[in-house]
């Protein structure tokens, strides 16, 4: 009996520290899981520098006029013929056009009242088609 008493007092004389590590890891995992990393993603464009204006031949411009209803009017250079299409069809159009003329520039002109997402749709299609020479403008002569 004396032996058992001695053993009991030995067990209880320190705070159990083995579970402290578990608590700390629980905290660690909690903070790791609840940390939300912001979504820094999007469509990158390079803005022109101030006063940078390059004269471009009308033959090298593909006008994409975005209407308020999201329909895109495609006009080649100075020709007056207008082709209407959906933003998704721009991707195939650009691939066709750029093989015919590698110097082509996409001039995206958006109606001031058109929602932002229609411009994003067109920009998306152009970037999917690998277009790099894109000019973003607002439609001025309505």
């Amino acid at each position: 009996m004396a032996v058992i008493n001695q053993k009991k007092s030995k067990v209880s004389d320190e705070v159990p520290t083995a579970s402290m590590a578990d608590i700390a890891f629980l905290l660690l995992v909690f903070f790791l899981v609840t940390t939300v990393f912001p979504k820094d993603k999007g469509l990158e464009v390079v803005l022109p520098e101030q006063g940078e204006e390059i004269a471009v031949s009308q033959n090298n411009i593909l006008h994409l006029i975005i209407r308020t209803d999201g329909i895109v009017e495609v006009k080649r250079g100075e020709s007056t013929s207008i082709q209407q299409m959906r933003p998704d069809d721009i991707e195939a159009l650009w691939r066709n056009e750029v093989t015919a003329n590698p110097n082509l520039i996409a001039a995206v002109k958006t109606h001031p009242d058109a929602p932002h997402r229609f411009m994003i749709d067109v920009l998306d299609s152009l970037q999917l088609a690998g277009a790099e020479r894109i000019s973003l403008q607002m439609l001025e002569d309505i």
């Binding site: 979504k39 820094d40 993603k41 999007g42 469509l43 990158e44 464009v45 390079v46 803005l47 022109p48 520098e49 101030q50 975005i66 958006t110 109606h111 001031p112 009242d113 058109a114 929602p115 932002h116 997402r117 229609f118 411009m119 994003i120 920009l123 998306d124 973003l136 403008q137 607002m138």
Partner: peptide
């Protein structure tokens, strides 16, 4: 749904601030 006129004005402001790299967050 933001009208494009605001986005165009922002771009003009950024051009006058000299910013080159812009990302439309999507």
């Amino acid at each position: 749904e933001t009208p494009y006129s605001f986005m165009d004005a922002i771009q003009k402001e950024l051009v006058s601030a000299g910013v080159v790299r812009v990302v439309f967050a999507t």
